[in-house]
Design a protein around this nucleic acid. Structure first.
Lengths: 99, 99
DNA sequence: TAACTTTATCCGTGATCGCGTATATTGACT
DNA sequence: AGTCAATATACGCGATCACGGATAAAGTTA
């Protein structure tokens, strides 16, 4: 649990639900997870963000050529935001490289 | 300061440097900030991620039609990652809507 | 100011977007 | 199994990508 102290509000939420994304696929999977959490279909989300269901499908599939506009529109429609930060945990692959 | 506890490592870092992005522009600005922090030119970054300097320029400018592949390649080259999370702080615009 | 570095912008090309529209495939429920 | 909802995929189209290559514009330093 983390508390964000704003000049106006103090908001607490469970950061363990936050999704880390390093690839388009992980980005898509994270969005799908949040969409389902809100009980929305791809069609519902598409309507909110003025895109087609097919476009949402490709975004969630992690199509690397998807445009940033689609990504950010989807996040806005789901009331999500991105945080850019230095990579933290060390992946299993990277650890193996140590030996 | 936040401590991330991993099964293998405990890493502390200053999360106040993390950048929140809700638009392609903010995403680009954040990347530019991290790139400069590492004393890299757009050309340097382009070389690392196998893209042209001109492409990095458009990414940092927040061109909404930039492809996800470019974004994620840049993050990888800068050793950054994304976190998807519910929107937290309330923007000034949103607060104004309350009155 | 001049020289140099860095960033922004342009042309032409091939690839691929998201679109509308439509359908195949998959999943869930009875 | 059968029905309905949800998701993935297809076609043609106009728009725009990132590319190689090159140059203009802006920023930095002597």
């Amino acid at each position: 649990m983390i508390a964000y102290i704003d000049s106006l509000y103090a908001i607490t939420y469970d950061s363990s639900m936050d999704t880390i994304a390093r690839t388009p696929q992980q980005l898509g999977t994270g969005i799908r997870r949040y969409r389902r959490q809100k009980n929305l279909t791809q069609g519902d989300l598409g309507e909110k963000m003025h895109a087609r269901q097919a476009t949402v499908s490709k975004l969630e599939a992690g199509e690397p050529a998807t445009q940033l506009r689609i990504l950010m529109d989807a996040l806005a429609a789901l009331d999500l935001e991105l945080v850019i930060r230095p990579r933290t945990t060390v992946s299993a692959d990277a650890i193996e490289d140590l030996f």
